Computed example of a mutant assay.
Amino acid sequence: MDIGSVIKKYRKEAGLTQEEMAKRLGVTTPAVNKWENGNSKPDIELIAPIARLLNISIDTLFSFREKLSNHEIEAIMRKMDKMFSEDGYEKTYEWILELINEYPNCNMLIWQAAVMLDAGRITDKCNNPEKYDKQINAWYEMALHDENEEIQHHAAESLFGFYLRKKDYIQAEKYLNYFSEHDPMKKFYHGRLYHDQGKNEEAFEKYESMIFSGFSTLNMVLSMMTRLALQEDDIGYATFLSEKVQAISQVLEMGKYNEYSPMLDIVCAKKDVEETYNVVKQLFENIDTMYDFRKSVLYKHMKFRDFDESVFDKVKEKLIESFRNGEEFSYMTGYEPWERLICNG
């Protein structure tokens, strides 16, 4: 906020009109109006009289800003942490209250200060935690409407945690609406909400669905990294990544087919005839395990859609077609076991 905005803010708080302020300072009303509109600045000799008239310090007159840098906020947080130990919760709260009044539009400061005070009030640092609920939550609400999505997200997370601790589940769920449907943490917090309400079946379902979708994300990312490594002819790294996909598939019980499939790109890149044959043979033999996760206890609370088992035959047909006609498998031509495999399927 520039000096004109500061003058306007504190003039109004002092209950002065522009005309009254102008008379006391010995200047014209249009001059005050120009200061406040940012069209001009007061002369240097008027700075001290303006500060005295508005009952503010010269530092406040010049340094009232909307934002603080990340470095400044980090320094404030360190000072807060030190004050908790040396001066106690009450004095720390009063100090940060004054600071936020000085920087009322710095939502990053407001949110981080609220988080620290929130953490302090649920420990032995605060003797009367409920005394501060209204103000801390008001700060969270301010941060919730910031244009920065990260600040909004953190504020919603903090408010969700507060109302969850209070067992006000309706209010807690309200703040989950600030999370994207694609944000996995929304499922996690829904799981916590159900857990705290004793709705264990629903909680399990949310947690299990996070594991399931987490596998899909990891599988996709590691597979793309594998292809990138192969493009760079780094077969060692690509093999390492594919083995990670195999391990994850095994741990998360995704079925034998999903354990073997990551190695197909590797054996193909190496043009290893015997290994290619072995991998493809395992794929054919385990096609019907593609949906074995449906049988896993790990996902026993999830509800999966019914599927037509004829899908296995269709997958097999497509695999055979790609092995027969794909140029990348031309190095297998003439290998008798391979010919029999792709002919017999």
Score class of each variant (00 low, 15 high):
residue 64 F to S: 04
residue 34 K to F: 05
residue 41 K to N: 12
residue 38 G to N: 09
residue 68 L to P: 00
residue 36 E to R: 00
residue 48 A to R: 15
residue 41 K to T: 15
residue 52 R to W: 09
residue 54 L to R: 00
residue 71 H to V: 03
residue 58 I to W: 04
residue 67 K to A: 01
residue 46 L to Y: 02
residue 34 K to W: 01
residue 55 N to G: 00
residue 45 E to H: 04
residue 57 S to Y: 09
residue 68 L to G: 07
residue 39 N to W: 15
residue 49 P to C: 07
residue 60 T to R: 03
residue 39 N to F: 09
residue 37 N to W: 02
residue 37 N to Q: 11
residue 62 F to C: 03
residue 37 N to I: 00
residue 49 P to N: 10
residue 64 F to E: 02
residue 68 L to N: 04
residue 37 N to S: 06
residue 59 D to K: 08
residue 69 S to T: 07
residue 57 S to M: 10
residue 47 I to T: 14
residue 45 E to C: 14
residue 70 N to C: 11
residue 69 S to D: 03
residue 51 A to L: 04
residue 65 R to I: 05
residue 69 S to Q: 04
residue 70 N to E: 09
residue 67 K to N: 07
residue 62 F to R: 03
residue 52 R to E: 12
residue 60 T to H: 01
residue 53 L to R: 00
residue 41 K to I: 13
residue 40 S to R: 13
residue 47 I to S: 05
residue 54 L to K: 02
residue 38 G to I: 06
residue 43 D to G: 11
residue 71 H to W: 05
residue 51 A to D: 09
residue 46 L to V: 04
residue 65 R to V: 00
residue 48 A to H: 12
residue 68 L to W: 00
residue 68 L to T: 03
residue 40 S to N: 11
residue 55 N to T: 08
residue 47 I to R: 08
residue 46 L to S: 00
residue 47 I to C: 11
residue 37 N to L: 07
residue 59 D to I: 05
residue 39 N to A: 15
residue 46 L to P: 01
residue 35 W to F: 12
residue 51 A to W: 04
residue 57 S to N: 11
residue 52 R to T: 10
residue 37 N to A: 03
